[in-house]
């Protein structure tokens, strides 16, 4: 049986309870996986790496976390096609681990930013976005000090041609302007807020969809993303060997 959303817990991560809550209201099941675990549970159908400050973000956000056994297990599962979504610190971990291109540098205004932003969905049809249409504008909060997406120009070109850009920061009407400090507050290159790997099963984004799943909290626009992942987890084929990606 599949369908479980695995939530890796690396010391210093702090959005794990929020992710579990969002997965539950999106109709899914989740389980916390301790950072020392070398394999994901057999029933894992997707992985949601939560935000926070893994290892205090010491040295660099995600730099130490990527070497934990659980992240290595996630990397193996990802290579086998497992849907993986990393949000905020989770995105930083995936970049550091080389599972996603680019890096997240210090916000252009230096300061930490916790605020709502608008993002435009660029690539539908991935495990994290199949419940949305390209062009959908979502209001979702960001919460980071190092979220300025950075990569060499040729990498950025490739990301565009290969449809690896998941979401871009935009104005409320969907207009993207990378030079606009209001709509692109952390100064991300080409206003990129989230990307995927070439095959699309691994995705990372700085905005927190799990924080925007209920109207009482101000926005439910993030819910389709969580629902996409939950649905992908439930429809993923059963792993061929016990312990998805485990050895």
């Amino acid at each position: 049986m599949t369908g479980l959303v695995a939530i890796p817990i690396i010391p210093g991560v702090n959005c794990e309870h929020d992710v579990a809550h969002a997965v539950r209201i999106a109709g899914g099941r989740s389980a916390f996986i301790h950072h020392t675990d070398r394999a994901l549970p057999a029933e894992t159908g997707a992985v949601y790496i939560p935000g926070g400050f893994a290892y205090g973000d010491y040295l660099r956000a995600g730099a130490i976390a990527r070497f934990t056994p659980v992240v290595e297990a996630v990397a193996r599962a990802a290579a086998d096609g497992m849907p993986v979504l990393g949000v905020c610190n989770g995105f930083q971990v995936l970049c550091e681990a080389g599972l996603l291109p680019g890096a997240l540098a210090r916000n252009v205004g230096v300061r930490f930013l916790c605020q709502d932003v608008h993002v435009r969905l660029e690539t539908a049809g991935t495990p994290a976005s199949h419940r949305l249409k390209a062009g959908n504008v979502l209001r979702i909060p960001i919460n980071h000090g190092e979220g300025c997406f950075t990569a060499p120009a040729e990498v950025l070109d490739l990301l565009e041609t290969r449809n690896q850009i998941l979401v871009r920061y935009c104005a409320a009407d969907g207009t993207v302007d990378p030079a606009d400090p209001v709509s692109n507050p952390n100064g991300s290159l080409r206003a990129i807020a989230g990307v995927t790997n070439p095959s699309g099963n691994v995705a990372g984004m700085m905005p927190h969809p799990e924080r925007a799943c209920e109207a009482i909290l101000g926005s439910a626009d993030g819910r389709p993303i969580v629902e996409s992942l939950v649905h992908a987890a439930q429809s993923a084929p059963a792993p061929q060997s016990a312990g998805a990606g485990g050895r």
């Binding site: 702090n14 959005c15 309870h17 929020d18 809550h21 969002a22 300061r111 930490f112 930013l113 916790c114 605020q115 909060p141 919460n143 927190h208 799990e210 924080r211 799943c213 209920e214 009482i216 909290l217």
Partner: peptide
């Protein structure tokens, strides 16, 4: 706002 924006004020999904 410049102060509040620097604080994570949403964690735990309780902030109405």
């Amino acid at each position: 706002t410049w102060i509040h924006r620097q604080y994570d004020h949403q964690l735990f999904l309780n902030t109405v």
